[in-house]
Structures are given as C-alpha cells and as structure tokens.
Nucleic acid binder design. Sequence first.
DNA 1: CGCAATTATTCAACAGCGTTGCTTTAATCT
DNA 2: AGATTAAAGCAACGCTGTTGAATAATTGCG
Lengths: 319, 319
Amino acid sequence: MRSHNDRTVLRLVRSGAVSRASLAAEAGLTPQAVSKIVARLIAAGLLEETGTVRSAARGKPRTSLRVAAGGAHAYGAYVDRDELRVVRLDLIGEVVSSSVVPLAPMFTPADVLDALAPLVSADEKVLGLGIAIAGPLDFTGGVVSPNGLPGWNAVPLRELARERLGLPVVVDKDTNAAVLAEAWRRPLADAAVVFVGTGLGVGLLLGGEVHRGARSGAGEFGHTTIQLDGPLCVCGRRGCVEAVHATVSGAEAARVLGAAVVSLVQLLDLDQIVLSGRKVLESPELYLKAMPEVDVSVTSYGPDLVPVGAGLLVLGELY
Amino acid sequence: MRSHNDRTVLRLVRSGAVSRASLAAEAGLTPQAVSKIVARLIAAGLLEETGTVRSAARGKPRTSLRVAAGGAHAYGAYVDRDELRVVRLDLIGEVVSSSVVPLAPMFTPADVLDALAPLVSADEKVLGLGIAIAGPLDFTGGVVSPNGLPGWNAVPLRELARERLGLPVVVDKDTNAAVLAEAWRRPLADAAVVFVGTGLGVGLLLGGEVHRGARSGAGEFGHTTIQLDGPLCVCGRRGCVEAVHATVSGAEAARVLGAAVVSLVQLLDLDQIVLSGRKVLESPELYLKAMPEVDVSVTSYGPDLVPVGAGLLVLGELY
DNA sequence: CGCAATTATTCAACAGCGTTGCTTTAATCT
DNA sequence: AGATTAAAGCAACGCTGTTGAATAATTGCG
C-alpha cells in the first residue's frame, strides 16, 4: 500500500499535479493521506515545495510541489555494436552527464565492464544502472546472448556488472529501453518504437507496460512474413519484412515497412508509433508518408534514446 | 491491500494450494495473516475446509481448503451470428447450466435482451453477466458496433442489459472471452486464441492479462499483410491473411495461416497458441502440422468456449 | 482596518490489516 | 505416557490511511 501510493504521488507530480489538494483529487486519496505521503517523500528528498499558486479567487493558495531533480540518480548504458554510451539521469529523467567510448571490434564482456567502471560512480544518490543491449536475452536473469556479437553466449551481464560496480543492475533489450524513453516524454499506453537499421525490431508498450513475452523475446518484428514465398531470410524462412525490405530501397522500402507497421497497429490497436534507426533517420519523410493511417513520428531523442531508456528501467521503479 | 490479498489467496487455492500453511509459503504472507484472510473468505462463503492431509511424517496434518463452488455464480453470454448461448458458472468456473436460443436473421438489440431475460436470474449469488460479441466495440463503455450485424451501430449494450436485467454487466469481444476461458484451464501468461472462420481474429493474453489496446480493437489478425500486392481484401488493402487464406484451401490454407501464426508468436514471444473456429475444427490436423515450431493445440472446449469466457470476465474479478 | 468567507493544510484520535511472539491443537515417535 | 513436530489460533503491536476538528493564508466587504 505504502510504496504503491508513494509511487502514485510521485508519478502524478511528474505529470503535472500541482499541490497536495490536486494530488488528493487525482489519486482518490484523502487530503490527509496525501499530506502524510508528501511529508515522507520530502523527507526522503524526492519532492520539494516551490512556492504557492492561487487556484481559486479566494482561500489559501496551494503549495506547489515538484519532483526534486537531485533526489535520486540512475545510470543508463547502451552496449552498441561499436561503442558504449552511458548517461547519468536525475530524478526527473534529465541527462546530467553523458559519455561515449568506442568499443574495439570483437569486444568481450570484460571490455564492456572495463569501459563502464570509470563512467559509473556508486554514490549514495544512485539507484542503479540499466544496461540496454541487442537481444536475445533473459530479462529476469539478466543473461544476454546478443546477435552480432560473436563470443557472447549466455553472458550473465547483470551479475557481472553488479559485482564489478557494486550497484543494482537491470539488463534489457535496446528496443524496450527505447520505448520506455519515448513513453517518458508524453503519456503513452499502447505504442511501439520501430527500429529500422540492419535488423528490424520493435519495442512494445502495451497497457502502459513494456511487453517482453514469455522468454523476453518479444519484438522480433523483422521476421514477420510479409511476402509468402518471398526472398530467403537469414532466419531460414522466406518473405520476412527484414529480408524484403533489404532487397528494395527508397519509396519501395518505405512501402514495405509501412504495410508491416499498419498490420502491427491493427493487430495490437496501438495509438502511436515512433520510428528510429539509421535507415529511417536517413529519409524520415519517405517512411512517414508510407503509413498515412497511423499516428507516426520520428523519435525526438538523438543518440541518447536507448541509454536514457536504460536509465529509466531503474528510475522507473520509483514511479 | 485487503482485496488484493483476498484475490491472491483465492487464486492460489484454485491453482492447487492445499492448506493455510502452503498458502502462506506461496503467497509470501505470514501464517497468521493467511489464517485471518481464510477466515474472512470462509465467512463470505467463498472457501471451505474439506478435511485434513498429512504433509510430513509427524506433526499436525494440514487442514485442506478448496474454493466453495456454490459461493458465487456468474452468467456468460455469447451473441453469435444466429444464436444466443448462455451459461451459468459456479465459483470454480464450471458450467452449472447452459442454454441456446436461436436468433432470427437481422436480429436487433431488443431481440437479444428479450432472449437473455428469461435465461438470467438475478439471485443473490450472481455477481454479474459477461456478454461476448464480435467487434468492434468499446470495452470500457460497453458500446458495440459488431461486424456482420446490420443495424447495430454504437449500441450501448452494457447499459441496456444492466437496466433490463438488474445485474452488473461486462461486454467484451468474443476472442477475448475465448482466451480467458483457455487461460482458466491451465496457467497461461503469453498466449493467443486464433479463430479461423469466415473472419480471422485472435484473443491476446499478454503478461497474464487480456490485451485490448488503445480503443479495444486489438486482435485484428485477419488484416495482417502476408502477401504484398496479393488479392484485394474487403478492408480495401491487398494481401491480408484473411483474403489470401480465403483464396486457397486444404494444406495450402493451413500453410498460409501457419506462416501468420509463426510471425505472431515471434513478434509477441507467445508460449502457447490455441486454435478454434469452424475452419480449424473441420481439419485440425492440417493446421496443427502447418506450424511445427509453435506449441499449438485445438481448444478443448466445445461450443461453450466463448460463453464460459464471457462468464469469467465477471468471475475473474474475484481472482 | 477588521472580520467573515473560502480554500489548503495539519493535528489528534481512530480503524483496518498484516506482523510478532507465544499458546493451543493434533498428529507421530520413543 | 511424554517428547517431538507441524499447523493453526490468540493477543498485543505497528504502520498506513480515515475521520472530524483546528489552524493557516488568502480575498472580499462593511
């Protein structure tokens, strides 16, 4: 009960609730309960008062509240093909510092840990580290076997990082981190981030939660059949979107992806699609025009999309 | 807290927990708390003691518990194309009575209410009525505009039924009811029921919950593109699974559906697929063989699949 | 200016639910 | 019979939210 209501209040303040009075109204709690909860959160350094706001013509003005940015921090890391990107987030999810270091070809788990260690400091304010990496992986166990990284087989990355850094660590797919980051900037409940690069993957937000599936494998969008008996795919089957998309280019490629995205939106009844990935960023207009039925946009994050989402894996536990 | 733990205990007893002691272990509560919760549930008539079971070589035997079948009932109704099927469920989800009445061609909402009224009695034990019907519909508002029923446009079916019958009513898509029914018989977390009839739809269970999407429209599996530039579909686009599937038959039809289901399983990382619908029931072997990579089975329910699921929409609130 | 009216927040007593510590009950083993 | 073991209940307690009344900070009006 307690932690649930604490999270509810923090979330409401972040999403614009002004004062104890408005929190009570929106959370369905009594003003008294909100008073106690807010007192706890202020004592913990997670909330702060910022003055007063007149809400009605008469009466005592409301004491406005906001999330105390410095109340807690989290690190987010993105283990990409050729570089490691790390951000430090404050409690409102803003990037307070950011670093990129290159990773040598054929880098090993030990290389990643060595690169991480100097970028992450386990001070008191830090809740933990989220690491985003390509799938497949086991989310609950934190064990990764990323595609495209030879030699990485069933690496217990979460445990390795936790021991090396002395911090709680969460490991998730890069696409899941991305959709968390997008959902942080605006309220999303059923949405997807579609990554169009060499591969083709989606991060799914369903019912307000990241959908990972039975074995943390959800998001394999690239191997959806879109052309029966189409070109052979690396996965061994024929006519996967990824394979068909790779054989064409320009407007035709966008048309192929568009058809797949429209199918996805209908299947899951999504209300928002966000595009990202190298191929899309090269010619966004083409892709946006290819799916006129869909409420689609290109990510508003730069290269921080995934690492910020990784940090939110940790920070999100407070909300 | 209270209602949450009450539900947890009821769910655990249903799924095989034997006694207060085992409940405490499985729920992570203290034996004392479980004792109090069980006492409440017995007083409410939802649980009953059924004797004792020796768990260890020595010591007091455990007092075994089970859900009191008669503790509460719920009705489930399925408004099909040409008939209305109603079941009454007891608290363990068993059908205690069942009726079918034909519906005249072009039946109206009033016809359905007239058919329902004599089959549903609002006695004290009855929690409510779940109604399953073809989409599209608005789940939260209980307003339906089912495909294939001319004249049904934005019918506030939930409100109409509630007024007429004097019972709480929930309205949902037939496919969603079906997946609830399947999940009732065995533990499922990420699964789908695939209906293959004139149309093609799925009920999605994701993370243990029915996924309805932003506008209750999720499950539109039939209009997934599987053949770029394929045959024209009733939806106006080309190469939808439904349209391609309709142009072929036998093993080829099964192959088309198989490809679509494999894509679905990969996209959402489902661990179980259940097939239903007229087309599948005509030649189940054909369809099962068409998707060897998938853990797939044919529904073990007969015609009660959907109405039972509809009843579980209501009954499930206790679990 | 001073007091009523209004709105926000807090104080104090209370109630519900799970926990802790200990007791009672019901069985087996020696 | 008495010791041992396991299940379940009793009593007191603590935490969290609720209820009812008080306090604080404004505006409006005589």
